[in-house]
Amino acid sequence: MITLKVISKAIATQIKQGLINTSYSTVDFSSTDIKEEIKRPCFYIDFFKNKTGKFNASNKERTLTTKLYYFATNIRKCKLELMEIQDLLENMFLEGLKVNDNFIVNIDDGIEFDIDKQNGFLAATFDLYTVEEIPEDESIPYMDSLQIN
């Protein structure tokens, strides 16, 4: 199963790889709550809406609303930096989110960006829709393995 922790790590990995040859290659991710003091510049990933249920008898579906924050280096001089990060993020997720070699999630409805120049951050919001197989419980005997004496 693909966990929220795995998805969060995949987002961070994809961003870090996308920033390798840019002036933002050293920007890190904050793991603390954004209500606390944050070290700028940094990214922060938050999942704020998750709808999960059965798709059918053997599959689970999930719609996960994700918000990615980027806190600019300088609150007072952030306009160009936030525009550059927005451009980079737009291109990084055009092909979706690669969770692993066998699991790539498309971002069909696109990414919505909000820039808060007063507080010096960019917020990118997008929905991830996944359908994955529910692993079989080995302890439950199925009809094909049921033995009748």
Rank of each mutant, 00 (worst) to 15 (best):
13 T>V: 09
140 I>P: 03
100 N>S: 08
107 I>Y: 04
18 G>S: 07
122 L>T: 01
66 T>C: 14
62 R>D: 09
141 P>R: 04
122 L>V: 04
30 S>Y: 01
86 Q>H: 04
67 K>I: 11
128 L>F: 04
49 K>W: 04
62 R>F: 03
107 I>R: 02
95 E>C: 02
32 T>E: 14
24 Y>F: 15
126 F>I: 06
131 V>Y: 00
76 R>V: 11
121 F>R: 04
32 T>H: 09
141 P>K: 07
136 E>M: 09
49 K>V: 07
87 D>Q: 14
105 V>L: 10
6 V>H: 08
92 M>V: 12
95 E>V: 00
98 K>A: 08
57 A>F: 13
27 V>H: 06
21 N>L: 11
40 R>F: 01
24 Y>E: 03
80 L>T: 15
131 V>F: 01
149 N>Y: 11
31 S>L: 15
43 F>R: 02
15 I>T: 06
124 A>H: 06
147 Q>W: 08
87 D>F: 10
143 M>Y: 14
121 F>H: 07
98 K>R: 13
133 E>V: 13
32 T>Q: 13
60 K>E: 11
86 Q>M: 12
19 L>S: 05
1 M>Q: 06
71 F>H: 05
57 A>T: 11
8 S>D: 11
28 D>A: 12
12 A>H: 05
56 N>G: 10
55 F>H: 15
34 I>C: 00
128 L>H: 02
77 K>Q: 13
44 Y>K: 09
75 I>V: 15
101 D>S: 11
4 L>G: 10
82 L>Q: 02
16 K>C: 07
131 V>S: 08
148 I>M: 09
121 F>C: 02
40 R>L: 02
115 I>W: 00
14 Q>P: 06
131 V>I: 15
77 K>F: 12
87 D>H: 11
83 M>Y: 13
93 F>L: 03
133 E>P: 04
135 P>Q: 08
75 I>Q: 07
4 L>W: 00
40 R>P: 03
143 M>S: 15
16 K>H: 09
119 N>G: 01
55 F>P: 03
44 Y>C: 06
99 V>F: 00
141 P>T: 10
119 N>L: 00
89 L>C: 04
119 N>W: 01
15 I>C: 04
53 G>F: 05
107 I>D: 02
35 K>L: 07
103 F>D: 02
25 S>V: 08
143 M>W: 13
63 T>Y: 06
7 I>F: 05
123 A>Y: 01
124 A>L: 07
37 E>R: 09
74 N>W: 00
53 G>E: 12
81 E>M: 02
117 K>T: 08
87 D>W: 08
133 E>H: 08
101 D>E: 14
20 I>V: 14
10 A>Q: 05
8 S>R: 15
39 K>N: 13
39 K>V: 14
77 K>C: 04
10 A>R: 05
16 K>R: 14
54 K>Y: 12
116 D>C: 03
131 V>A: 03
64 L>N: 04
75 I>A: 01
106 N>Y: 06
102 N>S: 10
93 F>I: 04
73 T>N: 12
57 A>H: 12
28 D>T: 14
120 G>R: 00
111 I>F: 06
139 S>C: 00
70 Y>G: 01
20 I>H: 08
